[in-house]
Simulated scan of single mutants.
Amino acid sequence: MSLTLPPRVTDRAFARLAEIAEDTGEVKALRVAVEGGGCSGFQYDIRLDEPASDDTVLEKDGMKVLIDAVSLPFLANAVIDFSEELIGARFVIENPNASSSCGCGTSFSM
Rank of each mutant, 00 (worst) to 15 (best):
M1A: 04
M1Y: 05
T4D: 12
P6N: 04
P7L: 12
P7A: 15
R8T: 11
T10V: 01
D11Y: 07
A13C: 09
R16H: 05
L17T: 04
E19Q: 10
E22S: 11
T24Q: 07
G25D: 08
G25W: 02
K28G: 04
L30E: 14
L30K: 13
L30C: 11
V34K: 13
V34D: 05
G37C: 02
C39H: 00
G41M: 13
Q43N: 11
Y44E: 15
R47A: 15
L48S: 09
L48D: 09
D49F: 15
S53W: 04
S53I: 08
S53T: 08
D55F: 00
D55L: 03
T56E: 04
T56A: 06
V57D: 14
L58C: 07
L58E: 11
K60A: 14
K60Y: 01
K60R: 10
K60Q: 15
G62A: 05
M63N: 12
K64R: 15
K64Q: 15
I67E: 07
L72G: 06
F74S: 14
L75Y: 01
L75M: 12
A78F: 01
V79E: 11
D81A: 13
F82K: 06
S83R: 06
S83C: 05
L86R: 12
I87R: 12
I87Y: 01
I87N: 10
G88K: 07
R90C: 02
F91S: 14
F91Y: 09
I93T: 06
I93K: 03
E94I: 10
N95S: 03
A98W: 00
A98S: 08
S100H: 05
S100M: 06
S101L: 01
C102N: 03
C104F: 00
G105D: 05
M110N: 05
